[in-house]
Structure formats: C-alpha cells, structure tokens
C-alpha cells in the first residue's frame, strides 16, 4: 500500500512527505511497521516535512533520531516544518563550533 509520508526514527517529531499533500487531507504516515493517520493542515510538497508531534518554539527538531535544527515558532501537528519555522544550529557563535 502506498504511503503519504515516512518517519525515520521513533524519536522524530517530523515526517517527510513522499507524495504532494493537500491541506485538509488525511495522510498515512509510516514508521517501520507502524502506520498512522495524520490530518494535514497545510499543503506539503513532495520531499518536505510536517510535524507529527506538537512542537513548541525552541524545541529541537528531530529526524533520523538526531537534531536537525530548532523550532523558531510553534508547529502544530500536520503543519509544514521548514525554513520558515526551523533554524540551523550550525555556524552559531552562541552555540560554539562542533559538539
């Protein structure tokens, strides 16, 4: 069965769309053998991410079970998670270089 989005690690709070998704639709989201349905709130283009858990501003964004950035605004489940609400933690003087 075709799925709409994939979650790569159980710790992740975002899924990646593998189809173009439309606001208002129900998306089938898979994490290995688990299949969930999530209501999509905004259009999500193929390859883009959306929140699968509620994200508060300042929270870490997790994909592959690793931090890929930090939320700069609250992101509701089913909403587009991208450059408009996520910032990189790299090259930041206040965070220091490396680990």
């Amino acid at each position: 069965m075709a799925i709409d989005a994939i979650v790569l690690n159980e710790a992740d709070n975002v899924a990646t769309a593998v189809q173009d998704l439309k606001a208002g639709q129900e998306a089938s989201v898979r994490l290995n053998r688990l299949l969930n349905t999530i209501g999509i709130k905004e259009d999500i283009p193929y390859g883009h991410k959306f929140a699968v858990k509620p994200v508060r501003s300042g929270d870490d964004i997790l994909k592959y079970g690793e931090v890929i950035g930090r939320a700069t605004a609250d992101i509701a489940v089913g909403c587009h998670a991208h450059v408009q609400n996520i910032e990189s933690m790299r090259g930041r003087g206040d965070l220091g270089k490396g680990a």
Binding site: L8, T16, A17, P45, Y46, G47, H48, K49, I61, K63, Y64, E66, V67, I68, G69, A81, H82, V83, I86, E87, S88, M89, R90
Partner: peptide, 18 residues
C-alpha cells in the same frame, strides 16, 4: 535543496551519513 524540502545543513548531511 531547500526547494526540495531540506531545511538545514544538519539534515542534508544526516541523509548521507545515515
């Protein structure tokens, strides 16, 4: 990359080192 859905350099590199 951003148009394709990659948000940060961390995410891009993680895809490769996965």
């Amino acid at each position: 990359n951003i148009k394709g859905g990659l948000t940060t350099i961390e995410e891009k590199s993680l895809g490769a080192i996965a």
